[in-house]
Amino acid sequence: GCGGSTPSNGNESNDKPAGEVVAMTFNHAFTEQDSRGKTYQFFADKVKELSDGTIDIQVYPTEGLVKNQEALKAVMTNTVDMAACPTSLNSNEAKALAPLDVPGLFNPRKWREANEAITPIMNEILAEYKQRYLFATDEGETIFYINNKNAREVHSPADIKGLRIRDHGMWIGKTLEAWGASPMTVVPADVAVAFDRGTVDGGYTGWPFVYNFKLFESAPNISVLGLSNSTWQYVSISDAAWQKLSKEQQEIMLEAAELAMDYNEGLMEDYEASFYEAVESVGGTVYRCTDEERAVFMEASKGLYEEVAAYSGEKGVKLMETLRALPW
């Protein structure tokens, strides 16, 4: 870069030829302690290490640069070079991503396989928005977490009929409606109070969210439905930033991405175990839905596949078919 030129002192046998350092910004919404927050920092560190410091990724946690719902646009306009993008907040713009918001398209335990399968089509979709797909993180299996005394365990849609369930996006709202629940929007800052006070009867999302916000303390009745989460959390990089990298540096980015996903998998195993421990420590209950019970839920919301296909267009259908073709 510019400035700070150090006088050469003769002994430079170890130094690389004076390569330009490529500086990049990376925005995400999680805290530095969150499993995904840690993964992104791990990725940045790995890239720096593998590239001998020629790629310097500055990570901005907790929406430090842009809000999550702006992530896709921010990368597109080069406001940030990289961002973690949740499809649930961006699929209103990149409509072909919408199928990833519908729970039940693939087995969340096999997210690495899913990631591998969709990478080409994701790149096809994101190319239109001047960016490229890098890697994804585990969003966990979906759970119901209920604070209504009358519905401790959720076995079938009948158990949540009429309950006020917190939603977080259009497609999750539609899914909950299809299951007979009353979806309701609550802002994140007030979610804890809403559960505590019974403004809502429960929620339905991936368990990491429930863990992060300690929602199991006020809604301790957990039923693991085990569908894919109603969002796909992926990292994308702008075309402009990608082209600044040499071929070799691009390879390094992809290698670091694989390592970051390995790292994330390891983190999530421990993290999941400690989540269920935490639930039990506050006297909560954990029920794991059977395959048959899960099938009933999937059957009930099957109509959404057609709806999302109509919404998300040709590429969206391709994405959806790719995921549905994966073995459960």
Binding site: E128, Y129, G169
Partner: peptide, 22 residues
């Protein structure tokens, strides 16, 4: 203005449960 143009070009919807062209 720039976002209005992009929203038109890419047929963006507004964030929310009611799809409305951004």
């Amino acid at each position: 203005w720039e976002y209005a143009v992009m929203a038109y070009q890419f047929a963006w919807d507004a964030q929310g449960n009611l799809p409305l062209p951004s």
